[in-house]
Computed example of a mutant assay.
Amino acid sequence: MQASRVHELSPEEQAIYRRLDPSRLPQHVAIIMDGNGRWAGKRSLKRFLGHQQGAESVQFVVETASRINLPWLTLYAFSLENNLRRPKTEVNFLMRLLGAYLSNNVKRMNDNNVRIRYIGRTDELPHEVRERMEWAAEQTQQNTGTTLTLALNYGARSELVDAFRGLCQEVQRKELALEHITEQDIQRHLYTAHMPDPDLLIRTSGEMRISNFLLWQIAYTEIFVTDRLWPDFRGVHMLEAIENYQSRNRRYGGLSDDLQSLPGNELVGR
């Protein structure tokens, strides 16, 4: 594991970190970044300025994740639905913003030992954006700290469709019998097959919905919702969410350990 860089946290972040149990930090935090448009609207600004400010929040959060040795951070950056519903001018701006973010932040990623990866139907993105994505991945591939995964042109239902297509091809090639398909077989065809499921899902802007994000992977994930809009979200707020996460008793679909030990509960929750 990389050396601790907790000393680089801000005083406000350090105050929260001291209340955390470092041995119980989540291995994987996923974030639905929501509220860029509302942030701009509340200030009578153009929407694109909200997106620009949101891009700044990304790097702040990534650097805090690196300093606490968080292994995996996944950000819902651009959904498949957004690609279809947003005005073309806004989609084009978001693509330019993505390219600029990668160009401007690869050095900071390397300085923070962060490597970048992507999930989604990225082959449908503009060619010049894909080139910049591949370049950033190559530039950071030797880093061993936090893996930052951007979900781009991503939708969980489309991910499952792609996974089932892969399984069907295996069955057609007689590499896998239909009656022998397991959850593990589905898992290895997901975009996220190379990473653990999220321990903690954070959603900004107060919306109480999943928005077609990692539907398979978050079956037992703890969810934290904040009213804070994404452009105002910083590393300290991620640490607050982790503090809340550590206060919970994860049950993975069953009863807590204390309840399971009570007489008469031998069959409950199975």
Rank of each mutant, 00 (worst) to 15 (best):
M1S: 09
E12C: 12
R18T: 11
D21K: 07
R24K: 13
R24L: 08
A30F: 04
A30L: 10
N36Q: 07
R38S: 00
R38C: 02
R38P: 01
A40T: 12
A40G: 03
K46L: 15
R47I: 00
F48C: 13
Q53C: 11
A55K: 00
F60S: 10
E63T: 05
R67N: 02
I68P: 00
N69G: 04
L73K: 02
Y76V: 03
L80G: 05
M95D: 03
L98F: 07
L98D: 00
G99Q: 05
N105W: 00
N105P: 06
M109G: 02
V114Q: 02
R121V: 08
H127P: 09
E131L: 10
E134P: 08
E134L: 15
E138L: 15
L150S: 05
L152K: 01
L160E: 04
D162L: 15
G166H: 10
Q172N: 14
L176G: 03
L176M: 09
H180A: 15
E183Y: 05
I186F: 11
Q187K: 13
H189S: 00
R203Y: 00
G206V: 06
L214I: 06
Y220H: 13
T221F: 08
D227V: 12
P231S: 05
R234E: 01
H237N: 09
I242C: 01
R248Y: 08
N249F: 14
R251A: 03
G254I: 14
L255T: 05
S256E: 06
P263C: 03
G269D: 07
